[in-house]
Every structure is written in structure tokens, then in C-alpha cells.
Amino acid sequence: MLQAIIKVTFLEGLRNKAVYGISLMAGLMMIFTVVLSGMIMRDVGKVATDFALSTATFAALLVVLFVGIIILARDLERKTIYLALSRSVPRSNYLVARFLGLGLLQGFVMLLLLVASLITLVLVKNMYARYFGAVSLGLVAVAHLFVFVQMLLLTALSILFSMVASSPFVTFILTILTWLIGSSTQEVKLLIESAGSDKFFPVVKILVTLAYYLFPNFALFDLKATAAHGLTLHAGKAGFALLYGLGYSVAVLSLALVLFKRKELT
């Protein structure tokens, strides 16, 4: 029963035109990366890695925004959800299965992106072997994993938002804002802390600290610099980020479940 819902979710994603559009964009970006590498003087590998990983992040984000949110919204809006819920499928199972289905889809897309990134980087490495720098292909793979976990969390958040939002647009806006803010809070906090006490009003500091703890810290999942320069990835930090992402997802999903159980599906 769970499997059936997961499978339908995955299929819906795969048969969605948006996925092809996003893949096409990612493919073009990867080709562009190879072309661009010729312009760089020294750190060719680093720039290629930045572009590949940024493309992967952006594409994964688009999958959450334009496939994940749409699948859930359409299910509620067109009442296709009735078929499952008019049987003895518990609502909690339905939502969890939907989440897992979207996760599977996201994982599949991430795998494609990883393959594309690796092909791009190996190509660049062969073309500019002398200037490939300290790029670590292993860390590039780990960085993709981190993007995946990050997008799982964002998917969970979008599910939560779709439970409270009045329309898919609102869900869309809330999701993207959360991602944008969550990607920057750490930076803003560091900035304010390093600026000295008199430069900012205390109110600003409180607001920033509040935002830092209120929004998920997506910067934790950003391994672009680590992979591009082959820096050391501390096992403790990496483990913390993974646990943080998964734990946060579970918490958000549980909250969404509580709301979903009470939701009127008119």
C-alpha cells in the first residue's frame, strides 16, 4: 500500500515535463561549464566544480519547487487524493509515502546530476590536467549527497507549508523564502558578530539570532568550497549536518502530519 503510493509519486515526477526541462537546463549548464573552463587562468578545476555543484543545487531546488510542490498541490486540488483516503489508508501513511516518493524522485534526479557533474569534471580534468587543482571527486559526490539531504528537508518543509497555505503559490513562496533565508542566516550572524557591538542596533542582533534559530541552517549542507579546493571534511561536522537534516525533516514532517490529520479535504 505504501509502495503503491510511493510508486505513483515517483512515476508522476518522472512523467512530468518539468523534470525534463530541469534536466535539459542542467545538461546545458554542464556543457557551458566545459566551455567556460577555457577562460580560467589557473584554478580551472575549482571553477568547473563550482559550476557543476551550483547547477546540481539549482536543479535540485527546481525539482522541489516545480515538481514536489505541484504534485502535492495537484493531488489536493483535483481530489485525486480521495481514492487512497476513501480506503483504509491512514492519513499519516499517505503523507509519509508521498514524502518518500518525492524523496525517491529527488534521489533519482540527484544521481543523474552526480553522473553529469562527474562526466563534466573528468572531461575538464583531461582537457586542463595541469590546472585541475586540488578538486576532490570523492567530495564532489559527498556534496551531492548533502544537496540531496538538504532538498529532503526542503521537501518536508514544503509539505508542511502546503498544509497551511491557501494555495500552491503561497506554498511556493514560503518554500523559496525559507530556502533563501536559511541559506544566508549563518552568514548574516557571523557578519554581525564580527562587526563589533556598536555597529548594529541590538534589535537587529536579536532578529538575526531569532532568524538563525527559527529557520533551518541550509548553509550546513553547502560543500562546494570543500569539494572544489579539496579541503578536509571533518567527520563530526558532516555527521552532524546529516543528522540535523534528517532529524529536522522528521520533526517538520511530524508537524505536517498533525495538521494533515485535522485537515478537511473538501
Partner: peptide, 17 residues
């Protein structure tokens, strides 16, 4: 609802299937 079959008004299916 274990043995219930429901036809909604204006039914919509997963039309990608």
C-alpha cells in the same frame, strides 16, 4: 473504510497513468 468503494463527483484520476 476497508471494504468501501467511492466514486467522487467530477472524478479526476492520475492522468499520467
Amino acid at each position: 473504510r476497508a471494504r468501501v468503494g467511492y466514486l467522487p463527483e467530477n472524478p479526476c484520476q492520475y492522468d499520467f497513468l
